[in-house]
Simulated assay, not measured.
Amino acid sequence: MIVSEADFARCLDEVLSAPAQAGDGVLGPDSVMWRVHREAALFLGAGRALLLQLAHPWVSAGIAEQSKVFADPLGRFHRTFSIVYTMVFGTRDQAAAVARWLYRRHAAVGGVMTETAGPFAAGSRYRANDVEALRWVHATLVETAMMSYGLLCPPLTDAEREQYWREAMRFAGLFGIPRDVLPADWVSFKIYTAAMMESETLTVSTAARDIAQRIFSGEATWVGPPRWFSALTAEMLPERLRLAFDLPDGAREHRSAARARIWLPRLYAALPPRLRTVGPYQEAMARLCGEPCPSFTRLLNRGWIGQPLMPAANAAGVRRPSAQS
Rank of each mutant, 00 (worst) to 15 (best):
297 T>E: 02
218 G>M: 03
179 R>L: 10
184 A>Q: 13
265 P>F: 03
226 P>S: 07
193 T>D: 06
179 R>M: 08
195 A>S: 14
258 A>G: 03
264 L>D: 07
167 E>S: 07
165 W>H: 02
166 R>A: 14
185 D>L: 04
169 M>F: 06
195 A>N: 15
268 Y>D: 08
249 D>Q: 13
224 G>D: 04
279 G>R: 01
209 R>T: 01
279 G>F: 05
285 M>R: 10
238 P>I: 05
212 A>D: 11
223 V>I: 15
217 S>Y: 04
250 G>D: 11
200 E>T: 11
194 A>L: 05
228 W>D: 00
210 D>T: 10
175 F>K: 02
165 W>Y: 15
173 G>A: 02
255 R>P: 04
180 D>E: 12
222 W>H: 13
292 P>C: 10
189 F>T: 03
209 R>L: 09
294 P>N: 04
254 H>C: 12
292 P>V: 13
204 V>L: 07
212 A>Q: 09
165 W>I: 03
263 W>C: 01
268 Y>W: 14
276 R>W: 07
217 S>I: 06
240 R>A: 06
183 P>L: 08
219 E>Y: 12
170 R>W: 12
177 I>C: 01
275 L>T: 05
269 A>I: 09
269 A>D: 11
270 A>L: 14
274 R>G: 10
298 R>M: 12
254 H>L: 13
271 L>F: 12
209 R>K: 02
269 A>S: 15
259 R>V: 14
283 E>N: 05
223 V>P: 09
201 T>G: 09
226 P>L: 02
270 A>N: 08
262 I>S: 13
285 M>L: 14
231 A>L: 05
283 E>C: 03
248 P>A: 05
296 F>C: 06
277 T>P: 09
170 R>N: 11
185 D>K: 03
227 R>H: 04
254 H>S: 14
198 E>G: 06
237 L>N: 04
174 L>T: 07
187 V>G: 12
177 I>R: 00
189 F>Q: 08
199 S>E: 08
167 E>M: 04
296 F>I: 12
243 L>G: 05
198 E>K: 15
285 M>S: 02
206 T>L: 09
256 S>F: 00
197 M>N: 13
294 P>E: 00
290 G>N: 04
280 P>L: 05
214 R>H: 06
261 R>D: 11
279 G>Y: 03
196 M>W: 00
176 G>T: 02
242 R>P: 07
266 R>A: 15
224 G>A: 15
174 L>W: 03
196 M>C: 08
298 R>C: 10
209 R>A: 00
166 R>C: 03
244 A>N: 09
212 A>S: 12
168 A>E: 01
269 A>H: 14
249 D>Y: 12
189 F>S: 01
283 E>M: 01
240 R>F: 07
231 A>T: 06
294 P>C: 01
249 D>H: 14
276 R>Q: 15
235 E>W: 11
258 A>K: 09
294 P>K: 00
282 Q>Y: 12
180 D>V: 07
259 R>F: 13
199 S>R: 05
277 T>Q: 12
181 V>A: 00
175 F>T: 09
